[in-house]
Structure formats: C-alpha cells, structure tokens
Design a protein around this nucleic acid. Structure first.
Length: 592
RNA sequence: GCCGGGGUAGCUCAGCUGGUUAGAGCGAUUCACUCAUAAUGAAUAGGUCGGCGGUUCGAGUCCGCCCCUCGGCACCA
C-alpha cells in the first residue's frame, strides 16, 4: 500500500547565493529521502522555495539601490539554478512572493485571529532614523553595559555572552548606516504559543521515533513558552489582512513556515488537480518529514505545529470540513558543515558557493561527498583535500572502477549480457548480498541514516571488486571452452551487481546512475530529469518553479535482473579523477 | 549564564537498552595482481574511547564535577 509522504525542505533565504553548507544540511539529504521513496513506489510530494521577505533582504536591496523584489528575483533564480544543477528533485520549488502564498498566509493569520490565538501588544522597538524601518536587535550595535565591549549587538554581547536589549546599549547605533536608532512604542500581533503548551507536550511526548536530541530539545522549549511576535514595521512582506495596518507586514518567519502548505497547494493547482494537496495535508495516514539545519528545529517542532494545531481544519483553505492539517511525523535536523576548520562566512571569504563547485566539478562528486561525509549527526568539516580523496579513492576507485572494469570486460568479449552457467556458492553469495541490499539500505534510508546507507552500497561494490579479483574473468577468457563459460558466468554475476547498484545508488548519485542505465543498454529515465516551468498567476504575475515528471521514472527499489543478450553501449568512465592540484587551487581561491 | 548536542586509531566517522581481546573506510607498511580512470585484492601496524572521581562482578556505554567545541535562549532567518 503506497504511502503519502511529504518531504518538506527548509526554505533557503534569498539574500544571496547559497553555499555548500546550505545544501549539505537539508538539500542533499532530503533529495536522497524523496528519491528513495519514489523508487519504492510511495506518493512523494517534495516542496520548498526561496524565503524572500524580511529585513536582511530589504537591507541588502537598499545597499544596492534596488527594490527588495528585484533582489529576491535575482537570488531566487540563482538558488533555483543551483538546486537544478545538483539534481534536487523538488515536485515544486517556488517562492514566498507568489499570490498563492500571500493568500494562504493571510488565511492562516485570519483564522488564528478568529480562533483567539493571536493578540496585540505594545512594545518598545528600534527603528532606523533614515528609513523608519524596524531595526532587528542584531542590527543595533553599541557598548555593552555589562562589560564595556564597544561592538556589542542589540541581542547579545559577543564578548561577555550576556543577553541584552537594544535599549540597554550605551551609544547605540544602526549597523546599517551608523546613525543612532530611534526607539518608540509599536503595536504588534503575537502568536499565543503558551496556549498550545499542553497539546504540544502530549504530542511531542508521543513521538517515540524522533531523534532524542530533537525530542528532548523540543520538550525543554515547551517548559517555557512565550508568545511570539508575528508582525513587523516594514513595507516588504505579506500584508496584514486587516484595516489600519498598512505600515506593517507579517513577520517573515510566520509566512516562511506556511510555505510548506502553500507550496503543496500550488503544486496541486499547477498540475490541474487543485484538491490533490489534501491527500497529504488532510490525510491522517500521510507522513510529513521536515528537513532543516539544527538552528531551525524550534520552528518545525514547536512553532509550526502550534500554527497547524491552531488552524485545525478551519479557515478559507480547508473550509471547516474533513481532517485537521497534519502535524510533522519526523523532524530531521542536520548539524553544520564547516569549511577547512572554520565557520562559513561570506563576509570573511570562508565560503564556497554551490554554483562555483558545480562549475568545476560534477554534481555527483559533490553529492557523494555530502552523502558520505555530511553533517548528519555532528558538525563535519569540508576540506578540499578530503573532497579530492573521497572522489578519487572511493567514488572513482571503488564504484567507478567496478563499473568500468566489468563493462569493459563484457563489452570487449561478449558485447552483450552473457549467458551464465551454473552458479557456484561464491556466485550465489554475492547475488544474495545484492538482493539483501535493497532491504538493508532501504531501512537505513527510511531512518534518515544516509551515511550508513551509502556506506552499505559502497561495501557491496567493494565485495564485487573482491569477487572479480578472486575469479579473474580476464584470465579465464583466454582459456579453454570450460574456462570461457566460467568467465561468462562471473561477468554475468558482476553485471547483475552493477545493474542493481545502479538502482541502489540513484538516491545518492542520480546523474551517474542515469549514465550507467544507458551504458547497460536500458531505455528511459531511471530517475530524472528536472525541469523549470513558468507559472502565471492572476494579474499576469509570473514566477518560475522547479519541478519534474517523476512519475515517468522507470527505476524501482527492488532487485532486477539484467536480461541475457541485452546489448551494452560502449563503456566510458562514470566519474572523473581529480588532479591533486585542485586542492591548492581551491585553497588559493579561499584565501582570495 | 541557562538548556541541549558533540569530544573514540594520523584523518573522517560507527559503536542500540553497560558484558568476552574497542570497529569501518581512507592514509601508512608489506605481499599479490595488472581486466580496469596506476584503478584492484590480501595482510600488518596504529587507540590509557576529552580529564578527574564514583556506581558495578564488569563502563567508551550509567552518575557527578571539570575542560574544549557546536547550536538554542523568543526582534537573524
């Protein structure tokens, strides 16, 4: 019975190009997960988009003298291109500036307000003297009243570590223009999170399958829930759907998490089945998996669930009928990737953008590295030396070489899949290990243990290399008829392993699996490709969506036999070996 | 400061509810092989499991304290 699986991926912020750390944490892992479940025959809906509101974008735009919309347009395109090039198979990768998203965000706002989960409160806020816009606490600097550090931020002093309020700073100034900010009273809407504390506690406590760190972290947060502001004094964002709030907008975090829902609705609309999103969102049997970095757990395990609980089945979208909106099934958080031992930092040049890596290296080389050495359970360090080593000594030497030596031997001597003779125990053992791999690797993938899953696949490849070295078909082929027949059997067995590893590796290495699919003489797309579509909304508003026709994939997550007699295409290497020089070149780029 | 995660071989990491001589890959060394992108296979060497103390017949695994590191702490997203 196929399951409905929602793969909800954190929304990259469109303030600039995204670096490797961003796609390491949620991009590649979520794609592996989605691809696996599609091959398995489940109904996967993988959604995300660029998060385009908020103060950092208005400020970046001001700096360049362009509109926030123009800045968001630019980086939506850049980020979308990166994800496409990496082969991240979103059903819909959209953006938060669509009419659809505005409408649904306003629906949630109105519904939560009607149900009494929102209230207004006045507080003291900092504003830019020049633009009048909200200055977030982090954008106010000054002297720390506790330790005297002159570069303290409005939220925290980096020197003494104490938490601060911008009003406490001595000689406060805006980080943007250096002028002292203006402090004044302002009224905002708040989400009454404490109202959900009991429900959340009960719900999270029952999530036995959550990772212990996410679960205990979240339960701990619930002990001390406070209302959270959901509006800002800005002119960039989703308008508040009430009279008299023209100078305020909905706070970016509130609208960003709603993207998971709005993107699902958009997907259904774009493919001409406008009600289809309900199969995921109003179906108690559906499972929702959220992928994000560890800094974002709170939004996915506490805040978004509160909003969903508050909305229930009410509002304009759901219409007060049927099941309430589904809560997350699993919150898969990743740790952080560091770069050559340091935190990524665009301003300090410690950064490697996705587009730059992909302009010089194959997507599968990067996907391999991030899958096998990514920050799954703890922070991990990206080094160019390790990237080259993983590529050359593991991807090329183990898997690439297995494919190449197997196909070359078969192509040269037989041209097509040879007829095997009787299997020896050694043949049977390897074939059985291959069959078992689907179950073993599948269950690791279901548990989001991507590193372990890929290690299993590589271990099978290693076994096959050992098998070939043991039986030496290239020698047998030169012997008598009996030896030649044995060579055919050995190569047949090796081909079966290669053919099935092609499938087992699709989630991790979709591009090279497709290439191998073709070299083995198969037709069609084992798992791809992606495509961009232009979507036109009412009023002729256009935006680009990353999607794909994933239903046409011919790959299936099960052992399959490569038929005797199937003609192979002329073999060529799946991967490129990298010259050690690239380590120095890349390190030089980092320094520059 | 408070809460949570991490600290295991040269490197990157596995080690579930405590149980015999602590594992893998890569790197190193040796041997074999040469079909294959000088790609493979076999073997060997490498660790007082961050520190100190405790519980236990027995602790990498549990408890306490400390050190280092990452994240969160509600106006970054």
């Amino acid at each position: 019975m196929p399951k409905h699986i929602l793969v909800a991926v954190a929304w990259p912020y469109a303030s600039g190009p995204r670096h490797v750390g961003h796609v390491a944490g949620f991009g590649v892992p979520s794609d592996i997960f989605a691809r696996y479940h599609r091959l398995k025959g489940n109904n996967v809906l993988m959604i995300s988009g660029t998060d385009e509101h908020g103060t950092p974008i208005t400020m970046a735009a001001d700096k360049e003298g362009i509109s926030p919309r123009a800045l968001a347009d630019r980086y939506n395109e850049v980020i979308g291109n990166d994800l496409y090039a990496l082969g991240l198979s979103y059903d819909t990768f959209t953006r938060t500036t669509t009419k659809n998203h505005y409408r649904i965000t306003q629906d949630l706002f109105k519904t939560l307000l009607q149900k009494g989960y929102l209230f207004t409160q006045t507080s003291l806020g900092a504003f830019s003297a020049s633009t009048g816009q909200t200055l977030p606490d982090r954008y106010v600097e000054g002297t720390c009243p506790i330790c005297g550090y002159t570069e303290a931020r409005g939220d925290q002093c980096d020197n003494c570590g104490n938490q601060l309020d911008p009003i406490q700073l001595i000689n406060p100034r805006s980080k943007v223009d250096g002028n002292p900010p203006i402090f004044r009273e302002t009224e905002h809407f708040f989400l009454n999170l404490p109202a959900f504390a009991e429900q959340l506690k009960e719900w999270i406590s029952s999530q036995d399958h959550w990772r212990p760190n996410v679960r205990s972290f979240s339960l701990n947060l619930i002990e001390d829930l406070k209302p959270r502001a959901i509006t800002r004094d800005l002119d960039w964002g989703v308008p508040i759907p009430l009279e008299g709030y023209d100078d305020k907008r909905i706070y970016v975090w509130f609208d960003a998490v709603i993207g998971y829902l709005s993107a699902s609705v958009e997907w259904a609309h774009n493919r001409g089945t406008p009600e289809a999103w309900r199969d995921w969102w109003q179906n108690p049997e559906s499972e929702h998996y959220y992928f994000m970095g560890k800094d974002n757990i709170v939004f996915h395990s506490v805040i978004w669930p509160s909003m969903l609980l508050g909305y229930g089945n009410g509002g304009e979208l759901v219409g007060g009928t049927g099941e309430p909106l589904q809560l997350p099934h699993e919150v898969v958080s990743s740790e952080f990737l560091t770069m050559e031992g340091k935190k990524f930092s665009s301003s300090r040049g410690i950064v490697i953008y996705v587009r730059d890596v992909l302009s010089r290296y194959d997507a599968d080389a990067l996907r391999y590295y991030l899958s096998i050495a990514g920050p799954e359970n703890q922070d991990t360090d990206f080094t160019w030396a390790e990237f080259v080593r993983r590529n050359n000594d593991e991807l090329v030497a183990n898997w690439g070489n297995l494919v190449n030596r197997t196909l070359t031997n078969v192509f040269r001597n037989f041209g097509s899949v040879p007829q095997p003779g009787a299997f020896t125990p050694s043949d049977e053992a390897l074939l059985q290990a291959t069959k078992d791999s689907f179950e073993k690797i599948g269950s690791l993938l279901e548990d989001a243990r991507f590193r372990a899953a890929l290690s299993e696949a590589m271990e099978l490849s290693r076994q096959a290399n050992g098998y070939l070295s043991e039986h030496e078909p290239w020698k047998l082929i030169k012997g008598d008829d009996e030896a030649k027949a044995r060579a055919a059997t050995v190569l047949y067995v090796a081909l079966q392993v290669v053919n099935n590893l092609r499938t087992l590796l699709v989630p991790f290495l979709p591009f090279s699996s497709q290439k191998l699919h073709e070299l083995l003489g198969h037709e069609g797309q084992i798992a791809g490709p992606l495509e961009f579509k232009e979507i036109v909304e009412e009023g002729d508003a256009k935006h680009r969506v990353l999607t794909g026709d994933y239903a046409s994939w011919v790959g299936k997550w099960e052992y399959s036999e490569l038929p005797v007699g199937q003609a192979l295409r002329k073999p060529e290497p799946l991967f490129k070996k990298l010259d050690e020089k690239v380590i120095e070149e890349e390190l030089a780029r980092l320094g520059a």
